[in-house]
Design a protein around this nucleic acid. Structure first.
Lengths: 141, 141
DNA sequence: GATTGCCTTCGAGTCACTCGAATCCATTAT
DNA sequence: ATAATGGATTCGAGTGACTCGAAGGCAATC
C-alpha cells in the first residue's frame, strides 16, 4: 500500500510542507515517485519518516537526523555510533516525559484554581484585599 | 530571596538569552531591577517565568503568552477567557504526554534492537542476506 | 591595577518550518 | 470540448523563537 504526501502527513500528524521538507533533506531513503513525480510512501518510507519525526522531537537537528539516516544506510559497521546516538536521545526522551507530566500537572492545577474562582465568587473585585496590595504579589499568575 | 538571570535560567532549565528575551517581551510583570539595572527575580517572578515556560511548551506563541499575562493583570473580569485558554492548553498537554510516552517507547524499542544486534553478532556483514536484497526493505531504519 | 565573572543592550544569524505563487496533471461537470 | 476542481509539484520569500557574539559597565579578587 502506498500513500501520498497528504496521507502520510495525516497519518503522522505533521504538515504536508514538513513532510516534503524532510524528504527533500534526504531523511526518507526509500521514498519512491510515481509516473507524475509525486512522492509515494511505502510502509517502509512511513517508518523512516516516523523515526525521523521522533528523533526531531528529541531535539536533534534535521542535519543530525540526516547523519543518523546515513549511518543506517552504511549498515552494521555503524551500529556502535547509532547505539550511542539512540541511548543519548533515549535519555532526553525520558526527561521529556517527566517535563510533560509536570506541564500537565501545572495546567491541571491551574484549571482547578480557575474553575473554583469561577464557581464560588470568593474573589470579589470590590474586596479591598484584591487591589490594595502594593508589593509584587499584587500580580499572581 | 532574589535570583539573577543566571540563577533563574538554571532553576528553570532555560538559557539566559531566553530568560532575557521573555522578560523583554513583558512576560514577567513583577520583574525588578537592582541599582545596576540587573534583573532580579523574586519567587513570584520565577512563578511567572515558569508559567510562561510551560505555556510556551504547549505551543503558544510568545505573543499569545503575553496576551495571557495581560489578561491576568486585568484581574477577575478576564477569568472566563483565561479559563478557556488554560483548558485548551491542558488538552494539548495531555496529547503531548501521550506522544512523549510513544516517543520514549520507540527509543526504548530501538535501543533494545541495537543492543541485541551488538551482543549476538547475528548480522554478519558477509552474510549475503544482508546485502543481496534489492527492494526498499534493503534499508530498514 | 589588571583579571575574572557576571551583568547589560543590541543587532545579526540560524533553524525549521510556514506560506504562497506558479505550474502541472487527472478527473469530473457543463 | 472546455472549464473547473483537487491534489500534486518546485521554488523562494517570510516568520518565530531563539542563539550567538560583540561591546561595554560594575564589583570583587589576585
Amino acid at each position: 500500500m502506498k500513500y501520498s504526501v497528504k496521507e502520510a502527513a495525516e497519518k503522522l500528524g505533521m504538515s504536508q510542507h514538513t513532510v516534503r521538507y524532510y524528504t527533500d533533506q534526504g531523511l526518507v531513503p526509500s521514498l519512491q515517485r510515481d509516473q507524475h513525480n509525486n512522492r509515494q510512501f511505502s510502509q517502509n518510507a512511513l517508518d523512516w519518516l516516523t523515526a525521523c519525526h521522533y528523533l526531531r522531537q528529541t531535539g536533534m537537528s534535521v542535519k543530525a537526523v540526516k547523519h543518523y539516516v546515513d549511518l543506517c544506510l552504511q549498515g552494521h559497521q555503524t551500529i556502535q555510533e547509532r547505539y550511542q546516538l539512540i541511548t543519548a536521545q533515549q535519555a532526553i526522551a525520558q526527561q521529556q516525559l517527566i517535563t510533560a507530566q509536570k506541564r500537565l500537572a501545572f495546567l491541571n492545577a491551574k484549571e482547578k484554581i480557575y474553575h473554583e474562582e469561577m464557581q464560588g465568587e470568593q474573589n470579589d473585585p470590590m474586596n479591598p484585599n484584591t487591589w490594595q496590595q502594593n508589593d509584587d504579589t499584587k500580580h499572581k499568575c
